[in-house]
C-alpha cells in the first residue's frame, strides 16, 4: 500500500459500519461531521455524536487561559484566578504565559492603536479552537476612553469575541459568570459569528495608495505588516 493513502486500510475495515451510517443519514450529510477520527472509530452515528459532545465537554472544562494583562481589568482578573474566587474550581483557571499553550484569551482592558497589531499577533499564535472573552467596557466600545484619539473602539474591531462581560471593571463574580457562559456555549458546540469587519494586518505594499500611504512610503518597507485605523468609520 502506498504511503499517500494511509487511511485505506481504515476505510476498508470499517466499510460495513460506514455503509450502515450512510444508509441511516443518507446522501449529502453535513461535511463537518466526517472527520478522520469518525472514520477511525467507524461506529454508528449515535456514538459519534456522543463523542463530539464528549470533546466539547472536555474543551469547556479544561480551558487554559492566556496570562494576558492589559489594564485595570487585569487586576480583577488576577483576583478571579487567586484565592477566594478561584476560577480553577470551574475547570478554567490555569494561566499560561505563552499563547501557544492557551485556549482562551481574556482581553482585560483598553486596546490602543500601538497595541492592536500586537494583540492580533498574539491571537493568531493561539492554536485552534480558541475562544475570547472581552472583559470590561473598553473591550466593548472603548468604554470611558471611547472619545480618545488613540483608543480602538472595542476589541471586536481587531479579533472576534465570544463573550462580553460588561463593567468598569467587572467584579470577579461577573467574570466567573462570563466564563461559565462560555463553557456552556462550548459544550453546546456553538460558535460566534464575526459581526464587525476587523482591522487586519496587511502588507504595506497592498494598501491603496492614498495620501497617508504616500506620505509614509519612505519610512515603511513594502512587505512590512501594518494595521490601518480608519477612525472616521469606527462605530
Amino acid at each position: 500500500m502506498s504511503s499517500d493513502q494511509p487511511r485505506q486500510s481504515i476505510y476498508d475495515s470499517t466499510a460495513p459500519s460506514t455503509d450502515t451510517r450512510d444508509s441511516r443519514i443518507g446522501e449529502g450529510a453535513d461535511d463537518r461531521f466526517n472527520s478522520k477520527l469518525r472514520e477511525a472509530f467507524g461506529s454508528t452515528p449515535f456514538i459519534l455524536t456522543k463523542f463530539d459532545k464528549f470533546m466539547n465537554w472536555v474543551r469547556g472544562n479544561s480551558m487554559f487561559m492566556l496570562q494576558f494583562g492589559i489594564a485595570c481589568c487585569s487586576i480583577e482578573m488576577m483576583h478571579t484566578y487567586a484565592i477566594k474566587h478561584d476560577l480553577d474550581r470551574f475547570g478554567a483557571g490555569v494561566p499560561r504565559a505563552s499563547p501557544r499553550q492557551a485556549d482562551v484569551m481574556i482581553v482585560p482592558g483598553t486596546i490602543v492603536s500601538k497595541f492592536g497589531p500586537r494583540m492580533k499577533r498574539v491571537y493568531d499564535q493561539m492554536p485552534e479552537p480558541k475562544f475570547v472573552v472581552g472583559m470590561g467596557s473598553c473591550t466593548i466600545s472603548g468604554g470611558p476612553f471611547q472619545e480618545g484619539y488613540n483608543v480602538v473602539k472595542g476589541a471586536e474591531e481587531i479579533i472576534p469575541i465570544d463573550i462580553h462581560v460588561p463593567g468598569c471593571p467587572p467584579r470577579p463574580e461577573a467574570l466567573v459568570y462570563g466564563i461559565a457562559k462560555l463553557q456552556e456555549r462550548i459544550r453546546n458546540g456553538e460558535s460566534t459569528p464575526v459581526v464587525v469587519k476587523p482591522y487586519e494586518l496587511e502588507e504595506f505594499g497592498d494598501l491603496p495608495k492614498d495620501e497617508l500611504v504616500q506620505k509614509l512610503a519612505d519610512d515603511i518597507d513594502e512587505d512590512d505588516l501594518v494595521m490601518r485605523y480608519n477612525w472616521a468609520d469606527s462605530p
Binding site: S113, K114, Y149, I220, D224, L225, R228
Partner: peptide
C-alpha cells in the same frame, strides 16, 4: 507614546482626530 508612524500631534490645536492612521508591526 504614539507609534513612530503617527501623523500630527494630538494635543495641538489643529489636530483632526478623524484622519486615518497606520501602525506597523515590524
Amino acid at each position: 507614546l504614539l507609534p513612530e508612524t503617527w501623523q500630527g500631534h494630538p494635543l495641538s490645536e489643529d489636530y483632526n482626530q478623524e484622519k486615518p492612521q497606520l501602525v506597523t508591526l515590524s
